[in-house]
Amino acid sequence: MNILVCISKAPDTTTKISFTENNTKFDEDKVQFIVNPYDEWYALVRALEIKEKDGGEVTTITVGEADHDPIIRKALAIGADKAVRVNAHAGDAFFTAQQIANFAKDKGFELIMLGKETINYNGSQVGSMVAELLDMPFVSVASKLELNGSTATLNRDAAGGEEVVEGELPMVISCAKGMAEQRIPNMRGIMAARSKPLEVVEPAEAEMLTEVVSYSLPPEKGDVKLIDPENMDELVELLHNEAKVI
């Protein structure tokens, strides 16, 4: 099985978010970057499990500049065989999807896997766009993937619960909780990652459809109003008359 896993860079989940340059840029100062958790815990680890069982090769692809190399090495340390970095700033989702589709189009990948969203932009766009550009089916927010030859059986989120669906490879899958368990890279993996191939390719010509104009932070909450735990009638009264939510 020849699998491509899309890996994105994201700030660590505990990061306090702030912006610079007149609120047009995320302030990366002192920020610890990680592999986007959905890409790592679910897409990459499930891809590795499939490879370990059925053989084949797991390649990662990342659209980003050289500052992405540390998180790409992390993906290699977890067990990917080789990595590709498209040397460009990931301008928007469509730009990123075009780069991935352009790289993947003649490589014969049977599965293209990625997380259900990134934790920084929360767009859920790239997988579906790659599928469209490569004319492949797309299964979104999948929590289980089993393969039988070239037939994939998946559980995916659906209105009111889950659906079990089936389709023929190749396909694009966005992965969510349940797909696999996080793996912590061991020392051998970290050492091996240093010598695994990380190929840098130049970007294809591509367009951007959207652009961030500015960022802002939610307004600070006022002080919490403390209610006597003996007096829940007061809380109900406040929720009704002051907050007007019940």
């Binding site: 859920s124 579906s128 766009m129 550009l133 989120d157 459809l209 959207t210």
Partner: peptide, 20 residues
Amino acid sequence: VVGKSVAPRLSARLKAGLVP
């Protein structure tokens, strides 16, 4: 669920920008 899989597909097909 449907918006997340159909809207980006339509965006890529029509080259129409999407805000999800």
